[in-house]
């Protein structure tokens, strides 16, 4: 793939993290699905805000993303604290 050379550390970290979540919730695909939904909602909000050039306040803040993921990953402290390493302003 074109990303193979000069792969940013963030990319590798993200791949490892997604794999970890998939493995951890192998028997609960709905948890993984919910996690993806949270991420995609966050991304959509960020994009809306960017396109509006400051005239749009995202309805999903980093704190809310973190809170939603915390609820999803309850009793999985390691996954949650690792998620905090990705989130801006966490």
């Amino acid at each position: 793939t074109p990303l193979q050379n000069n792969q940013p550390v963030e990319f590798n970290h993200a791949i490892n993290y997604v794999n970890k979540i998939k493995n951890r919730f192998q028997g609960q695909p709905e948890v993984y699905k919910s996690f993806l939904e949270i991420l995609h909602t966050y991304q959509k909000e960020q994009r809306n805000a960017k396109e509006a050039g400051g005239n749009y306040t995202p309805t999903l803040t980093e704190q809310q993303v973190y809170a939603q993921v915390a609820q999803l990953f309850k009793n999985q402290e390691d996954l949650l604290s690792e998620f905090g390493q990705f989130l801006p302003d966490a």
């Binding site: 993200a14 993806l36 991304q43 990705f86």
Partner: peptide
């Protein structure tokens, strides 16, 4: 080797762009 679906890849994309943004805001 990784068995990644397009959805997984998009999760990786979102997470890594979040991390980049975080790094940019910290430096």
């Amino acid at each position: 080797s990784y068995d990644f679906t397009p959805l997984d890849s998009s999760a990786v994309y979102v997470l890594s762009s979040m991390a980049r943004q975080r790094r940019a805001s910290q430096s």
